[in-house]
């Protein structure tokens, strides 16, 4: 549990298009790392390369290394399916499986991993829903479809689904962008609690959110149209927002562009 990432010279391509250029980044365990930057700068692409989800898009490929506690997740003997089982992901828009009940949604990952013991599954469902601060709201309707919940509840259901398998790392791709402020606050509180146990990487367009929830912030930018995205700088969140090392970072966080 709670492993660290070391990203070394990561280049990402979609076919011939060079999307992200040479990222070097360390993500410490039990810590929240935020990726910020303008649209199209490659921050989501980098995030999706951390659990090999970008490979879902035909033609996508990666050069460089992504080490999870020292082991390269892109080594030739590593199965992407196994990588995704140990690295959880929460998406921009809540995506519970609409035909499954709330309980089945939460334990879907365990079921895929072959767990069949009903008692164990029920325990995990309760623990995960409690962990996602959703238990009290849904404990009376665990057998109802997950699609019937509000947007914020659905997103917490997706977080419960992701943490049910006790992943090494939790990746979040703009998890609050489709939510109202109250639900956003609930998710942010949850992130602060989850980081006691999990390594978290979050992509966000909301700089206040990055400032509130993260310990470390990485700023990505585009050097120009058609150019690959770059990691401009990474540092403690406090430092990035008070005294950034690069002019581009300062311009971005003070709202002068992007």
């Amino acid at each position: 549990m709670a492993k660290r990432f070391d990203i070394k010279d990561l280049n990402i391509y979609y076919g011939k298009f060079h999307a992200v250029n040479s990222v070097n980044l360390a993500v410490p365990p039990r810590n929240v790392t935020a990726f910020i930057g303008p649209s199209g700068c490659g921050k989501s692409t980098v995030l999706r390369s951390l659990n090999r989800m970008h490979e879902v898009i035909p033609g996508a490929r990666v050069e460089g290394k992504v080490l999870l506690d020292g082991e390269d997740i892109y080594a030739s003997n590593v199965d992407p399916v196994e990588v995704r089982r140990t690295i959880g992901m929460v998406f921009q828009r809540p995506n519970p499986f609409p035909t499954m009940s709330i309980r089945d949604n939460v334990v879907a990952g365990l079921r895929l991993a072959g767990v069949k013991n009903k008692k164990h599954l029920d325990e995990v469902a309760e623990r995960s829903l409690r962990g996602a601060n959703l238990w009290n709201e849904v404990k009376d309707r665990l057998d109802r479809p997950g699609g019937g919940l509000s947007g914020g509840q659905q997103q917490r259901l997706c977080i419960a689904r992701a943490i049910a398998v006790q992943p090494d790392v939790l990746l979040m791709d703009e998890p609050c962008s489709a939510l109202d402020p109250i639900s956003t606050l609930a998710i942010e509180d949850l992130i602060t609690e989850l980081k006691k146990e999990y390594t978290i990487v979050i992509v966000t367009h909301n700089m206040q959110q990055a400032a509130r929830v993260s310990d470390q912030t990485a700023f990505f930018n585009l050097l120009g149209v058609g150019q690959p995205g770059q990691l401009i700088e990474v540092d403690d969140t406090e430092k990035i927002f008070s005294n950034p090392g690069q002019k581009a970072t300062e311009d971005y966080i003070s709202g002068r562009f992007g």
Partner: peptide, 9 residues
Amino acid sequence: QIEGALALG
């Protein structure tokens, strides 16, 4: 939904 399932392994 497809990505949700794939991301769960």
